[in-house]
Design a protein around this nucleic acid. Structure first.
Lengths: 110, 110
DNA sequence: AAGTGTACCTTGACAATCTAGGTAGCCTCC
DNA sequence: GGAGGCTACCTAGATTGTCAAGGTACACTT
C-alpha cells in the first residue's frame, strides 16, 4: 500500500474526483485509490474528505450514484460522471491551469 | 487599478507573501499589490486574508516588521524576510512544485 | 473463531480565506 | 476650508474544505 506523505492542495479535490471518474465508473473507495495511483503516490485523499466531497458533488448534479457489488463481492456505491460533471471538470481544469500557471509565474519572477 | 477576478489557490498565500518579500522589504499594502503585479493580474489577495497571514507568518519568525513611512508619507508597517523565512520560502516552493506537478500529472492522464 | 482487508459513514476540530465592515491620515480640487 | 478619493491598517464573523479519529459491516483466509 502506498503511503504518500502529503496533504492535498485545497480546492483540487473535486476536480481530482471528477477526473478519476472521467475514465469510468468507480466506487468511492476506488476513487481514492485511483487518485493515489494516477498521481504516482504523491496525492492521497483521506476518507473523511472523500465521502463528504462525493455527497457535495452529487448534490450539485455532477455525478450520480448507484449501489452495486464490488470486485470483492462487497456492497459498494458506484459513481459516474453526468454530462454536467464532464463540463464542470473542464471548467475546473481551466481554472486550475490558469491559477497554477500564475503561481508558477510569480515563483519564477527574479 | 487592476481588477483581477479570481481567488487564490488555498495554501499558496504564505509562499506568495514570502516570495514578494524576497525581492526586498515592503509594507503590507504593497505586498498585495506586488502579488497582483507579479502574477499579471491573475492573483488577488484580499486584505482580510493578507493581514492575518502577515501576523501568522511573523509569529513563526519568517518575517519581521517595523513601522515606518510610506512613499506617500503615510505611516506603514514594513516587513522583511528573516533568514528562516528565506529557508521557509524554499521549502514551500519545493512542496508546491511537487504537489502542482502531481496534479498536472493526474490531469494529463488520458 | 480470529484476523485482515474492503467499503462505507459520521462527528468534531481546525485552519484559511473572504466579506464587510471600520479608523485615520494625506492630497487634490473646488 | 471642506468634500472626496486614495493609501494603509485592522477586525469580526461566517463559510468552507480538510483531516483525525472514531465507528459499522461483510467477505475471505487460516
Amino acid at each position: 500500500m502506498p503511503t504518500p506523505d502529503t496533504k492535498l492542495l485545497q480546492g483540487t479535490l473535486d476536480m481530482l474526483i471528477l477526473k478519476a471518474l472521467s475514465v469510468g465508473s468507480l466506487h468511492g473507495y476506488g476513487i481514492g485509490q485511483r487518485i493515489v495511483q494516477m498521481s504516482n503516490d504523491v496525492l492521497r485523499v483521506e476518507e473523511g474528505s472523500l465521502y463528504p466531497a462525493l455527497y457535495r458533488i452529487e448534490r450539485q448534479g455532477w455525478i450520480t450514484s448507484e449501489w452495486g457489488v464490488s470486485e470483492n463481492n462487497l456492497r459498494a456505491k458506484f459513481y459516474k460522471l453526468t454530462r454536467a460533471g464532464r463540463k464542470q471538470l473542464q471548467v475546473e481544469e481551466e481554472n486550475w491551469g490558469r491559477l497554477a500557471e500564475a503561481v508558477f509565474k510569480v515563483m519564477r519572477t527574479a
